[in-house]
Amino acid sequence: MGSIEQTFLLQVPSSTENLAMIRDFVASVGEQAGLGEEDVSKLELAVDEACANAIEHAHGNDLTKAVTVRATFDQQSLRIEVVDAGGGFDLGAVPDESLARLTAAGRMGGLGVRVMRALVDEVSYEIVPGEPNRLRLLKHIRR
């Protein structure tokens, strides 16, 4: 295959019911890209977090909207792009509150971005006015 890029695409209605399908998709592509079992698991979870954010926060669980997951890999890395149509959010503005503070406040949210950052090598988010928002995750392939 050399270093030729391969791209796979999944588009689903914006419902948390479809998170399992998204995880299966990511696992299949991860295995094909040559990621080890542990890295596949980490990537599955990171993409789950990105898509759950898109479905619940960007789309407000609106089934008429779609979440698109685009996976591209070559010999070196696997890149995942999650595209939503919502208002977007600034990753840099997500407060890095301690777990103790979150639990003391009875908060159930606030961990998704932290999970993503812990599990993949790069996380970035692109908001361009008038265009869909893109969250990008990158995982290096260790051979």
Binding site: L19, R23, L45, D48, E49, A52, L99, L102, T103, A104, A105, G106, R107, M108, G109, G110, L111, G112, R114, V115
Partner: peptide, 15 residues
């Protein structure tokens, strides 16, 4: 399997 939504339930009730 657990994602942050599940972890959030542990967090939300402990206090």
């Amino acid at each position: 399997y657990i994602s942050s939504a599940g972890l959030g339930v542990f967090m939300g009730f402990i206090e």
